[in-house]
Design a protein around this nucleic acid. Structure first.
Lengths: 298, 298
DNA sequence: ATCGCGCCATAGGATGCTTCTATGCCTCTC
DNA sequence: GAGAGGCATAGAAGCATCCTATGGCGCGAT
C-alpha cells in the first residue's frame, strides 16, 4: 500500500519540527542550512498541503498551533526512524573507513542494528562505524582474519577462538493474515502445518532449511510451497495480502504482529529457536569503542 | 539535528520497498501510479545517492541485492511510521465527515492514537474517522452534547453520565540529559528537585500546574524555571541539548528514554500519575465501530 | 526455431517546483 | 525613537521530475 502522492516531504516535516523545537522559522532555517524565505515558503506549503495552520507567527518567533503540536509529535516518530536509517546507511557506506568495524548477519543488521548505531553515532559523533552484512560463516571468517572488530550472528555453532555475549534471541514463528482460519484459535497442530502449502523463500534459504529440518526431526515430510519468493519482504507482503501461512523469523514480523497486520499462530511441538550473539576474537582486548557499543546494547 | 540534505526521498524509499515486495519495477510503478521509466529512474537515482546497487535486474523481474535487502528492511520502519502519520492526518482533516467521531486529549492524540488509527484504517478502509484534539473539559463537553462518539482523556475526575474504560496510564517523570550529574545515580531527593531550576512550559500549562501542586502537597515551594518554552517539543529539545532537568509526561519522552537520549531519574516521594481512559455517553449503545476500535486497542 | 510477451533502459522535451537575493513591514526592546 | 529580530513577498534562475516513444534483452510457448 503506497503512501499517497500528497504525503508531505520528509524535509518539510523535519524543518517544521525544528521550528517547533527552536521557536522560530529563522533559527530552523539556519539549522537546516537554507535561507529564511525558503523555510518560510516550505512551511506555508506544508500548511496548504495539510489544509491546516500549523504555526502562530509572532514578532518574537513562531509557536505551534494546537494542530501543529499534534502534527509535530506525529512527525517526530518518522524522523526518529529516518535517523536510524541514516545511521545504518552511513555505517553501510563507510565500508572500510570506519574506526570500529562491525560484521553482522542479515537479521540482526535489518532489525536491531539501526537503533544501536543511531545511539552510538549520537554519543560518538567523531567515530564512524563501518558495517558489513554477511552470513554467519563469513562473519566468523572476518573476525578470525582481523578484518572486523565485532560480529553479530544468530547461529548456535561452536566458536573456537571467539568470545561471545548474548544480545537477544530469535525464533521461527508461524504467521497468517488476520482473516485466516488459523487466526481465531491462534493455534494449529504441527501436522496440519506440515500438510499446508506455505509461502516460502526459494529453496536454499536458511529459514526454509531450518523449517524443513525441524519437521524432519518430528518425522514429518518436507513442507510444500504455494508460492516461492525471492526476499523476506516479498514473503511478508504475500502473507499479509494473501491466504497462506508462512514460517518466518519473529524479528522479521514483529512490527506487523504488533500492528495487527499478521497473527502469530502457536504450533505445539515445533520450536526453532536461536540466540543472537555478539562475538569477537578471544584473548585480544576488545576495542574500547566496541566495549561501549556492547554496553549500550545491554 | 536535521537530516542530511542528501537523505533519500520518502517516495523513493516507498517505491523501492514496493519493488522488493512485488518483485519487479514495473509492478511497483503501477502500484504507485507512475510510469515505468519514471520508477526505473527513481530507483537508479536512489542507488546513486546511496552509492550502492540495490537491485539485480533480470528479464523476469528484479530482486534485491544483499545491500538492497538490508536497506529495504530499514526503509520499512520509516514507512510504517509514515503510514501512522498519514492515518492521523486523515482523521484530523476529516474534521466533520467521518463516520466515527473521536475527541482526544493532546497526550493521547500525539503518542497513542496514530497506531490505533492506522490499524483501524487498514481493517476498515471504507470507514473514515474524524479526530478532534482538545483539553479534557472540551472532550467531556463534546460527548455530553452528542458531538462525538468516543473520547480519550487523562484526568481522574468524576464523570457523571459517561461510561469509561482504562486504555493505559501516564505519569510525570523527571528526566535529564545523559551527561547530567543526576543521570548516574538515577535518583535524586525531591527537595533537591524542588530547589533546582527546571526547563518548563510557560505558566498555565497543565503539566506545570500538576508539578506545582504535587510539590505543594509535600510542603515544598514553587518550582523555578531556568527556561520557559512554549511547547513540549521545545522543552524536550532543550533538555536533550542542555544541562537542566525537566518534569514531563512519560509518554512524551518514552522514545527518547528508550533511545538513550534522556535518562529518567527516580524521585522518591514524588508521584503524579494518571490513568488514560476511553469515555463515551452512558446508556446509549456504543457505535459498533467504536466498539471495534476499543477491542483493537486492548 | 521463431514469435510474442514481459521487463528494464534510454532519449528528448515539457512542465513544474524550489531555491536564492533583495526588500518591506511588523513588533518588541533598549 | 532607533535598532534588532522575525516573517512575508517578489522576481528570476536553476534544477529535477515527469511523461511518451522506442529499443534491447531473455524467457517461454507454439
Amino acid at each position: 500500500m503506497p503512501l499517497p502522492a500528497s504525503f508531505p516531504e520528509l524535509a518539510s516535516l523535519d524543518l517544521f519540527v525544528s521550528v517547533v523545537e527552536l521557536g522560530s522559522v529563522s533559527r530552523a532555517a539556519a539549522a537546516h542550512g537554507v535561507s529564511q524565505p525558503s523555510a518560510s515558503s516550505r512551511i506555508k506549503h506544508l500548511e496548504r498541503q495539510l489544509g491546516m495552520r500549523l504555526l502562530d507567527r509572532g514578532p518574537s518567533g513562531s509557536l505551534p498551533t494546537d494542530a501543529g503540536v499534534v502534527v509535530a509529535g506525529w512527525a517526530e516518530t518518522i524522523l526518529r526512524a529516518a535517523h536510524e536509517l541514516e545511521a545504518g546507511l552511513s555505517a553501510f557506506q563507510a565500508a572500510q573507513a570506519g574506526r570500529l568495524r562491525i560484521v553482522a548477519s542479515f537479521t540482526i543488521a535489518e532489525y536491531l542494528l539501526p537503533q544501536w548505531l543511531d545511539r552510538f553515532s549520537r554519543d560518538h559523533p567523531r567515530d564512524s562505524i563501518a558495517l558489513e552484512v554477511a552470513n554467519s560463516t563469513t562473519v566468523i571468517d572476518r573476525l578470525r582474519h582481523g578484518a572486523a572488530d565485532l560480529g553479530f550472528i544468530e547461529t548456535p555453532s561452536e566458536l573456537d577462538g571467539l568470545d561471545e555475549a548474548i544480545v537477544g534471541n530469535d525464533e521461527l514463528v508461524t504467521v497468517v493474515a488476520t482473516g485466516h482460519p488459523w487466526a481465531t484459535p491462534r493455534t494449529v497442530p504441527v501436522e496440519a502445518l506440515a500438510a499446508t502449502p506455505l509461502v516460502m523463500r526459494e529453496a536454499g534459504s536458511g529459514t526454509r532449511a531450518a523449517l524443513a529440518a525441524a519437521l524432519r526431526d518430528l518425522g514429518l515430510g518436507e513442507p510444500s510451497a504455494v508460492l516461492e519468493l525471492g526476499s523476506t519482504s516479498a514473503v511478508r507482503a504475500a502473507v499479509v495480502h494473501g491466504n497462506s501461512p508462512t514460517v518466518i523469523s519473529r524479528l522479521a514480523v514483529a512490527a506487523e504482529v504488533a500492528a495487527g497486520q499478521l497473527v502469530e499462530v502457536d504450533v505445539p511441538g515445533l520450536s526453532v529457536a536461536r540466540q543472537l550473539r555478539a562475538v569477537w576474537p578471544a584473548g585480544t582486548a576488545l576495542p574500547s569503542l566496541a566495549r561501549e557499543l556492547l554496553d549500550d546494547i545491554r
